[in-house]
Simulated scan of single mutants.
Amino acid sequence: MQASVQTALSPQAGAVSGGLPKVTARNVNLWYGEKQALYGIDLDIPAQQVTALIGPSGCGKSTFLRCLNRMNDTIQGCRVEGDIRLDGDDVYAPHIDVVHLRARVGMVFQRPNPFPKSIYENVAYGPRIHGLASSKTEMDQIVQTSLERAGLWKEVSDRLHQPGTGLSGGQQQRLCIARAVAVSPEVILMDEPCSALDPIATAKVEELIDELRENYTIVIVTHSMQQAARVSQRTAFFHLGKLVETGSTDDIFTNPVDKRTQDYITGRIG
């Protein structure tokens, strides 16, 4: 196989407008070794909205989420087929630089995972490795802006050089969100970001998600249908590795087309 020069996805290539989707997935199939986990997923993810992926445990929603920024590449024996595009660019094209892709498509995980560094360094890490700041003043501004966008600046501005691991669970999760937005992503993936948080911290993160969608496209996996109803504009229901139904959140929760969706929402399956 010839070595190819990796390039970043061009934000301008195939730029969407007029309400066209930010991310498109067509006939996405995935295997872990011999076991197939996703079957023919077709999904459009609109820009600057929150799309919630719901469904029973093990239904494929987190697996699909990780396809969008190629996190599944890190799993041995995982194989993905199909077409996933960001602004029209094939994210699985051989020349794509995965590091740049993950800067454009950031991720927040289920459990807060701050680096064992200071609050400042947690946020500055990404911009530093991507060369986004040419001076300390610029880096200071990126850190402050990112913490403000994550709703955390007022709580930590006087202790930026203390360990990020010393924050509460909810603050740590918002620090991880600040770390994600610091590299100016276009899409933020959130894999059950509130499942390890108490109700007060959950409410703060949900409020933050609603604010962030003004500037970012957000895809959230959640086990909580109440959370999906509160934070999302679009909902996709997964079951047994298949996308059963997708539509506006109001329609999915009040007038689902498929009986399996109805059964999940009413608690008959799950």
Rank of each mutant, 00 (worst) to 15 (best):
T222Q: 06
Q2F: 11
Y39L: 03
Q12A: 12
Q173F: 03
P112K: 07
G267N: 10
S62Q: 02
R111I: 06
I129T: 13
E214C: 05
L86K: 13
G19W: 04
F238E: 05
F64M: 01
R149K: 13
M225Y: 11
I265G: 14
R268K: 14
E186R: 09
G14W: 01
C59F: 14
Q48M: 14
R70D: 14
P256G: 08
G58Q: 12
D198N: 02
C78T: 15
G241N: 00
R66P: 12
I252M: 11
Q6D: 04
Q262G: 10
L189F: 05
I188V: 12
G270Q: 08
F115M: 13
N255D: 15
T63Y: 14
Q49I: 10
R260S: 12
Y92N: 15
I177A: 04
Y32P: 01
R234H: 06
L175S: 06
A229E: 01
G106L: 13
V105S: 07
G166M: 09
F253P: 04
K259E: 15
P112N: 03
E186P: 05
I269G: 07
H130I: 01
L189H: 01
E148D: 08
A93I: 08
R268H: 12
A93K: 08
T217C: 06
V143N: 00
G267H: 00
R260D: 09
G88S: 02
H100V: 00
G131K: 12
L189W: 05
D73I: 11
V23T: 04
C67E: 03
A201T: 01
G82M: 11
I220Y: 06
N69A: 09
I54K: 07
V91N: 03
V205G: 01
T137C: 01
P199Y: 00
G60I: 05
C176Y: 01
R159S: 03
G247H: 06
G267V: 06
Y264D: 11
E214G: 13
I209S: 06
V23D: 11
R159T: 02
R70W: 05
S146Q: 02
R102S: 15
D158A: 07
Q172C: 15
T249M: 01
E138I: 04
L243N: 08
G131W: 00
L189I: 06
G166E: 06
I209P: 09
T202N: 04
L20Y: 02
E214W: 03
T202S: 00
D83S: 15
Q144S: 11
L208P: 11
H239M: 06
K204S: 07
A124R: 07
T7N: 14
V244T: 11
Y264F: 11
R104H: 12
E138P: 12
T51F: 07
C78Q: 09
A93C: 04
V105T: 09
V108M: 12
T137M: 14
G19R: 10
L160F: 06
E211S: 12
Y32G: 03
E121F: 00
A182Y: 13
P193K: 02
I200F: 00
D87M: 04
K117E: 09
D140S: 04
S195V: 02
C194P: 00
V219H: 08
V143Y: 03
I75P: 07
F109K: 14
N29H: 15
E245C: 07
K259L: 02
S62M: 08
S118G: 08
G14K: 05
E121S: 12
E214I: 00
I41R: 07
N113W: 12
D258W: 05
S224T: 10
I75T: 11
R26D: 00
R268C: 04
G106D: 11
